[in-house]
Structure formats: structure tokens, C-alpha cells
Design a protein around this nucleic acid. Structure first.
Ligand SMILES: [Mn+2]
Ligand SMILES: [Mn+2]
Ligand SMILES: [Zn+2]
Ligand SMILES: [Zn+2]
Lengths: 154, 154
DNA sequence: TTTAATATTGAAAATAAATTTCAATTTGAA
DNA sequence: TTCAAATTGAAATTTATTTTCAATATTAAA
């Protein structure tokens, strides 16, 4: 898992991605760079369609196939993670320096809230160590009804 | 979340499912009963294909569409849950009286291990309460490399 | 038990996200 | 510059799941 990249400038992250690509014997293309830069602008969760439409809105000619292909590379490089699914669609999030992905998902309004809970994270890590797992990442999804939706029900 | 149904006989669970169906104004069919009975035999995780093939192996003529339809009802009734996905396919598990679904998933061999960790479960519940969530269920997935795969790498 | 309204079924078609194919283009080491 | 190899966009394909629909089964009422 990547860590402490919060303060890194995007320009440096782009350079690192180029190195990652080169190290794999692949070719560094303008499409790959453009997609990474666009992803680094996204604050929260995104899906392929959203990202693709943002690129198109800027006049980019990048294909959806390339978006899918670059997302795979960015996951491998540790820049993003698939964090949940909704309506048969994958959602991603930039994971640079962020603590792992704990989400509360409302089954009524489909809202997804981040959970920040260090105690939970420590316990997960402790458990993994005990069981001899080498954890790379982990997801916790709590499904339920959010406080807004509880109000509108009662 | 259902609880303490561990000791219930299958025959009683089947009766409860019939009541659930009736209460919804639906019709109780032999297909629905047959699918529930087959699911109650499964010890671990299963997917639709697996379940469908088991039924076919017994000479059943139930269609895959009905398997999908009944699974939706059983989720709604609280008998099963979708516990994870692999290769774009949903996996389910009987959830009667079981503690929530915490899984370690090996990214090399794709093995899925159950995690039994009461401390974790308590902490998740405590957090939900604090945040005013009404949790219905939750999933924790730790992705990493299992102890077997670590050996074969080094 | 018969009736009739309505839900359910199996089979086939549809859906849609993700992946693959392939010819044209781009990249980058020599 | 050269050129083998990787990448691209567009279209085709894949595949789990959902939907459609005519035939059939269920169930409550007559
Ligand atoms: Mn998140
Ligand atoms: Mn499980
Ligand atoms: Zn809500
Ligand atoms: Zn493994």
C-alpha cells in the first residue's frame, strides 16, 4: 500500500507513473498521462463513464477502451483502487496516502459515506498479522439506512 | 439481521419462508421450495451457476432465471447474502445465525477464507451506533497474499 | 370442486459493463 | 532515421444478470 504521498505534487506523481510504465517495459503515451492527470483532479469516487465524459468534455479523443486499460495500470501501480460497486458498475478512488476504504452505503438513497476510524484500521492490521496474511488493501462496507433516510421513513 | 436460527430445523426454515412469501402476497411454488432446500445444504459460498448445476444434477428442471429470482427473494427474506464478487460473478452464503461476513481473499490463488473476529465485529457495531447508522449488514474484505502463496513466491 | 384472477415459470431475447480483436498509429532504443 | 513492438480507437465479443412473454400453476372465492 502506498503511503505519505499527500504532499507530493501532481507533477511528481506523473513522473512516478512514467517510471512505473517504463520499468514494466511499456510505452508512456499521452493518453495514459492525460487519464492520470484527470483522475488526480477527482476528489471522491468515480466510475469509468464519469471519467470518460469528463475527458470528452475537455475535447479529448481518448477511447473508453483506453480508459479501462489505463485504470488497470493505475490500480496495479497503487494510484487508485476499486472501492465499491453499484448497479453492476465499479467505482474507483484515488488512494494516494489515504487510509483504507471504509464506507457506509445507504441501501435507500445509495449515498456512500467515508468512514474514518483508526481503531478499526489498527484492529484489521493486527488481525492480518496474527493470521499471517500479507494484506495489500481492504474494504469495509457497512450497508444500512442513513440518518436522512431514517427520518423520512418515520 | 437474523439471529439464533442455527438450531432451527430446515423444515422450520422452509415453513418460515412460505410465510414470508405469503405475507408478501406472492405464491409459494415447488421451485422456490426446492431452491431454498438446496441452498440450505450448501456449507460455504456458492454462485448461481453452481447452484443451478446442483439442481440439474438431481434431475430438476428449474430454469436459471428462477434461480436468480428466488435468490433475490431469499436475500430479501434474510436467508442469504451476497458476500463477495469474483470474475464479475456474485457469490452468496447462507447467513442464518452466522456472524457477519469477514473474508480474506488471496489475490494470487483466489482462495477465500472466513474471518472470525468478535473484536472487529463489536467495533464495527459500536462505530455504526456512534454515527447513527442503522446497519443491516456489513462486509469486510481483506485482499492480500495468503500464507500458502507467500511460501511459493519466496 | 370449479372458476377465475393473478403470479410464476422456462426459454429466449435483451441489457450493459468490461474485455478482446485488429488494423492503423505511435513509441523509443539502436 | 529505422523498425520491432506496444498502443490506440472502433467495433465486436463476452458473459452475468435482467426482462419479456406466452403457457402454466397457485390460491382464494364461489
Ligand atoms: Mn472512499
Ligand atoms: Mn463467508
Ligand atoms: Zn440514505
Ligand atoms: Zn493464495
Amino acid at each position: 500500500m502506498r503511503s505519505s504521498l499527500k504532499t507530493k505534487e501532481n507533477i511528481e506523481l506523473v513522473k512516478e507513473f512514467k517510471e512505473f510504465i517504463k520499468k514494466k517495459g511499456l510505452k508512456y503515451t499521452s493518453e495514459r498521462e492525460e487519464i492520470l492527470k484527470e483522475i488526480l483532479k477527482v476528489k471522491d469516487h468515480f466510475d469509468v463513464e464519469e471519467l470518460y465524459m469528463k475527458l470528452r468534455g475537455k475535447g479529448s479523443k481518448i477511447s473508453k477502451a483506453s480508459v479501462y486499460r489505463t485504470i488497470s495500470l493505475l490500480i496495479e501501480a497503487g494510484y487508485i483502487q476499486e472501492v465499491y460497486r453499484q448497479n453492476a458498475r465499479s467505482y474507483y478512488e484515488v488512494t494516494l496516502d489515504k487510509i483504507p476504504h471504509l464506507h457506509f452505503i445507504c441501501i435507500k438513497c445509495k449515498k456512500v459515506e467515508e468512514i474514518i476510524e483508526n481503531e478499526l484500521i489498527k484492529l484489521i492490521q493486527k488481525h492480518s498479522k496474527q493470521k499471517n496474511y500479507a494484506p495489500l488493501t481492504y474494504h469495509l462496507e457497512i450497508f444500512g439506512i442513513c440518518s436522512d433516510c431514517i427520518k423520512s421513513i418515520s
